[in-house]
């Protein structure tokens, strides 16, 4: 017999964790590697324990279940549990992501587990798509940087710069690296607040102090913290459209 599968139970409610633990008792080949009581703990536990399966609640303190995946870049062996989250459930249905709706029965749990079991260790493309979904009113961005999880409120962002295959998110006085495409982030942010001023730059329109013409054909955007950002011709038009629409 192969080594038992190791499961992590993530939920901020003790009774909810207890229920999953109880349902798992029917599956002796699965052992509970740990329990996490909030999103931050979950990020640490996923890194430390590398569980095969994660039972992941969505609405949690500190970080939501989706943000936990975002921060850890974990894309396999995830079974979502949620009591009610209209937005998430709609996304799950659309992308055929398996999830457990609380309260759920042992049978329903076993079904989800059977499906998850078959896919253990395999990257689930549906999760990639799920995390690339535009979030209604995205208010913060989760960034994992050298063992730390940073939560950056969207309102604090001055601008985002695209590097090769990652982006650099700049606030007034700090910057964070994240593996994501600029266009993906742009799609998640409110287009009335964030404007792509250049192929490699996205700025927060609330932090825009002014536009300066450097030569006849080129201009720069000056931000609240004094940073100057190159603006392409199309970018200049987008800024004007955005300001005009306000």
């Amino acid at each position: 017999m192969s080594a038992p599968l190791r499961a992590l139970i993530v939920d901020d409610e003790e009774l909810a964790r207890r229920l999953v633990r109880e349902y798992l008792r029917a599956h002796p080949d699965i052992e509970v590697a740990g329990e996490s009581r909030n999103g931050l703990e979950a990020v640490a536990d996923i890194e430390a324990l590398a569980p095969d399966l994660i039972f992941l609640d969505i609405q949690m303190p500190k970080l939501s279940g989706l943000e936990v995946l975002e921060a850890t870049e974990r894309r396999s062996g995830v079974v979502f549990t949620t009591a009610f989250d209209e937005y998430a459930i709609k996304a799950f249905e659309m992308l055929a992501v398996d999830y457990l709706l609380k309260p759920f029965s042992q049978e329903r749990f076993d079904e989800a587990l059977a499906r998850a079991r078959k896919l253990v260790g395999r990257r689930a493309p549906a999760l990639d798509r799920l995390l690339a979904q535009p979030v209604p009113k995205l208010e913060r961005i989760v960034i994992r940087d050298r063992g730390h999880v940073h939560v950056v409120p969207v309102a604090d962002i001055h601008y985002v710069e695209a590097e090769d295959d990652y982006i650099e998110i700049h606030t007034a006085d700090r910057s964070f690296l994240k593996t994501q495409r600029l266009s993906d982030l742009e799609a998640q942010l409110d287009p009335r607040r964030f404007v792509r001023v250049h192929r490699s730059y996205l700025i927060n329109i609330d932090k825009l102090k002014g536009l300066e013409r450097t030569t006849k054909d080129s201009q720069v955007a000056v931000l609240a913290n004094g940073r100057q950002i190159p603006v392409s011709r199309a970018g200049g038009e987008r800024i004007r459209d955005c300001l005009g629409a306000k």
Binding site: E13, A83, K102, P103
Partner: peptide, 9 residues
Amino acid sequence: FNSLNSISA
């Protein structure tokens, strides 16, 4: 639903 889940547990 969370309450019902707690009861279930």
